[in-house]
Design a protein around this nucleic acid. Structure first.
Lengths: 337, 337
DNA sequence: CCTGAGTTTGTTAACGCTAACAAAGTGTCA
DNA sequence: TGACACTTTGTTAGCGTTAACAAACTCAGG
């Protein structure tokens, strides 16, 4: 008896054909459902496939069809809730459509690191690329995006020469800011995310526009880096401020830091100061106090991102845009005093 | 002039050879550094590669070498801090070693869904598979893991017939529990994670063992699902409990829920009750109050996971194990009263 | 200036699959 | 019964690469 250890070559189409007593083409037709096959022949082939544990060789298939069935995702290596959720949304939609996802992560966003990641994916012959890097430098990297392979971006800025899906950050910021103003505060302070992030810019812009439209003073911007720590520091510096009524934080983590700093300073939220965040991370409802925030549906973002890429692969427009509208979730941090 | 639009076929080795005036094999040798090539020939070839924008066809290469340079990761589709961080750790280590990562996510862990994900990856001809699914059913799925392809698991239980990397959950739970006991409390309550999670079991076990070793009463276990919401509910039910001194939560999210519920019930932490968590998510230091917790180094876990897989691919042992030791981080939630 | 060893290049044949076309069956109708 | 249309199966070639071997070139030593 022949050894059938782990070292044995994987069975090929021809092996299956031999067992089933047909030509390799018939086996191929059974597997791919191309062309007619008599039911009894199909049954014999299927039995042979089962018996041998045959699995199509994806490399051979890709070589001849020119299609790998794989999409590449350039992801920022961060534990930020948004990007991670978006990734899962994309993976789900892609898997349903029969695509696999390979990721190439970028530790520090930048024009060249993103270009490297894209090149890295191209070497793996992905059929399309999704860049999740809502970063100013990513926008620049996208300007040099390859022309011969479909690329789409999540939150890549207005001007990118690729389809972009984004959440309407300005609108979200507007909602939060108007909500705070409607509570009767003279103005609203803002703890912004890092300047290099497009989302941070848009949120800041939405906040500023809203204040201006309402004709109220625009306080100086406190800049953080998305982390709770930076929010905490912002809170310490704000705690000394006179006329502090309301703060809109660029994300929920920084809002948490604010809450912490205010608690330490003996400032009560919402009695002394009202605070709102952005993202609606699952924990936000359990902060002390529960946080008013702007919810983004990242799963939806992921799904629509895949949709845009699929469209682009079908020859769709390079200028396609999709916008997801966020929603204000009101909780105690802006509640009645 | 010929059209050179996006529809043009990608250049092949032979095209490059034509431009450089050599045979395709010489080009192959230049690219792979196999066999000697005269410096001036190499320069000509390199110039031709540059000129044509040649990129090796990975499918053809994989077909002939039998190697795809790709590893598969089965990841739980969750935003839990741990799995996401582990994924990045793996991706980093793999990329440094020249491997690409393709992910197959699993929305609800279970024996068959994990097996499906593994099969899905095998169809893509990955060279090895990493299962991040610290779940009881994952352990069962691993028992049926394919023999002919290297598989390793993150936190897959003691008995899995594949190499496993895990954080010593019991030891972490012991540290947290002993810390609380050392503060003079009669006993420590525990809000556990879902029963199907191995990590939840191990943490519960570590907690229980520690209480027993110290000869103190073991209270009933409150069961949560890792979410802040479930922690909150646990906190509401605990709030009515007499003799409530100290609570060890199975993760930081649930601890957050506890803190919230206690705050609402007018129970002060740490004055009335002391609380500890597990994971040390980046936000834990900014909870109200800052949370004592057990830190797991997930990036290290990811790195070592890749190391174990690499070892297994080199014919290493199926019984290999790696254990990462967690660390107790003491903050105000178990601070002085 | 020839020989032999080493260096550099080329030729040919797979790898496993699908596309394109060819051939063989099956049945219907005049 | 023969011809035609349709269904089912088979044959061949080629995708772009590397492996294995063959050929050509270079140069030192006699």
């Amino acid at each position: 008896m022949k050894a059938t250890g782990a070292g044995t070559r994987q069975p090929s189409l021809t092996d299956v054909a031999g067992v089933a007593g047909v030509s390799h083409m018939t086996v191929s037709r059974v597997i791919n459902g191309t062309g007619p096959v008599r039911p009894e022949t199909r049954a014999r082939v299927l039995a042979a496939i089962e018996e041998l544990g045959y699995r199509p060789n994806s490399a051979a298939r890709a070589l001849v069809t020119g299609r790998t069935g794989t999409l590449g995702v350039v992801a920022l290596e961060s534990n930020l809730y948004g990007p991670a959720s978006t990734l899962y949304g994309i993976e789900n939609a892609a898997r349903e459509a029969g695509y696999a996802i390979t990721i190439s992560s970028v530790s520090r966003p930048g024009r060249s690191s993103i270009a490297d990641a894209v090149e890295n994916l191209r070497r793996q012959a992905v059929e399309g690329i999704i860049v999740i890097a809502p970063h100013v430098s990513a926008g620049r990297a996208l300007e040099a995006a390859p022309q011969d392979i479909p690329v789409v971006a999540v939150g890549g800025g207005e001007t990118a020469p690729v389809p972009v899906i984004s959440v309407d950050q300005r609108d979200g910021a507007r909602r939060a800011t108007e909500h705070l103003l409607a509570l009767g505060h003279r103005t609203v302070w803002h703890v912004a995310g890092p300047e290099e992030w497009l989302e941070a810019r848009d949120r800041e812009l939405g906040w500023r526009e809203t204040l201006e439209r309402h004709g109220v003073a625009v306080p100086r911007v406190i800049r953080g880096d998305w982390s709770s720590r930076s929010g905490y520091e912002a809170g310490r510096s704000l705690a000394g401020e006179r006329d502090l009524d309301a703060v809109f934080a660029g994300n929920d983590q920084m809002a948490l830091g604010l809450l912490r700093a205010f608690a330490e300073a003996g400032i009560s939220v919402p009695r002394d100061v009202r605070v709102a965040g952005f993202d609606d991370v699952p924990e936000a409802a359990y902060f002390t106090p529960p946080l008013t925030t702007v919810r983004q549906d990242f799963i939806e973002v992921g799904r629509r991102t895949f949709g845009l890429l699929a469209g682009r692969m079908d020859g769709g427009d390079r200028d396609a845009r999709a916008v997801v509208v966020p929603e204000l979730i009101v909780r105690e941090s802006t509640g009645p005093r």
